[in-house]
């Protein structure tokens, strides 16, 4: 309880100072939203022209795209303290010292250390496209689907959050941020926005068995859209998104707790 209140307090401080420059804040939010809207509009125009991709209609691809966008946007807001691009500054400049001096969980403090309100832009437009996609596709909603949707989003938030944590932890050794992690995070959102059949086998296998991205968006979407599975996996894999997400997150968390010991601070 105390932890939650402290987190909210830390977040509030940042929201307050970000709101001080209101025009700047609005423009930033707009530019963030604009980025994904433009890429979606391009995609929509092209899909219309080509009449879908790999047997998926515009609405179906939009559904994939929107789920990832929405989840990544949420994750980016909650986990931005662990964003390797930002976290690397802590290990480089030794500013983790000040968090370690306080009698509160370090993880909680890092969660509260960076909260970027303008990321709302991405969440907002992700929601918008999701609504649009759902209208376009005519999903047959059942109780199961309605209950499962938030779990899928939570699974992806944990998955991407885990990747952020992993990237942050690696900086304890490398000090510099590792760009390869961006391939998994930002590259992951791009990859997961399309049906997995379009990729070459080696790539799909990599994102099935090594980085289990396929279970987070593609398989749940097969369920929502009532599509058959071209890869003949057991039916149940459509429902493991939250478990996979949680697993990736927990693994990253254990790694993070281990990595903190290797924090070196900096020589003055």
């Amino acid at each position: 309880m105390k932890a939650l209140r402290l987190y909210l307090w830390l977040v509030l401080i940042q929201v307050r100072s970000q709101m001080q420059y209101r025009v700047g804040f609005l423009l930033e939010t707009l530019s963030v939203a604009l980025g994904s809207i433009i890429s979606f509009v391009t995609l929509a125009l092209v899909l219309q022209k080509f009449e879908g991709i790999a047997g998926w209609s515009l609405g179906e691809v939009a559904f994939l795209f929107a789920l990832v966008e929405l989840s990544f946007g949420l994750m980016d807001m909650i986990f931005s303290g662990f964003d390797p691009d930002y976290f690397a500054a802590h290990t480089r400049q030794g500013t983790l010292d000040q968090y370690l001096l306080r009698p509160v969980s370090l993880t909680l403090q890092i969660f509260g250390s960076q909260f970027i309100l303008r990321r709302l832009g991405r969440i907002f437009q992700g929601t918008l496209i999701l609504v649009y996609a759902v209208q376009l596709v005519n999903i047959e909603w059942t109780v199961g689907k309605i209950l499962y949707l938030p779990l899928v989003i939570a699974g992806m938030v944990l998955f991407f959050g885990g990747l952020f944590m992993l990237g942050a932890t690696i900086t304890f050794w490398t000090v510099e941020r590792i760009e390869a992690v961006n391939i998994l995070t930002y590259g992951g959102t791009e990859l997961m926005s399309y049906p997995m059949t379009i990729y070459q086998d080696w790539m799909r296998r990599f994102f099935t068995y090594i980085v289990p991205a396929i279970f987070l968006n593609y398989y749940p979407s097969l369920y929502f859209l009532d599509r058959p599975d071209p890869f003949n996996m057991p039916f149940v894999v459509r429902f493991i998104a939250p478990v996979v997400g949680l697993g990736v997150f927990l693994a990253a968390y254990v790694f993070w707790r281990f990595g903190v010991r290797y924090y070196q601070s900096t020589g003055s």
Binding site: D97, Q98, L100, L101, R102, P103, S105, S268
Partner: peptide, 18 residues
């Protein structure tokens, strides 16, 4: 026992604010 430990201490690093 970091969290327990830092409760009972105060620290000031001259060139860096906490």
């Amino acid at each position: 026992q970091r969290e327990e430990h830092v409760k009972s201490l105060g620290a000031v690093f001259g060139f860096r604010s906490t």
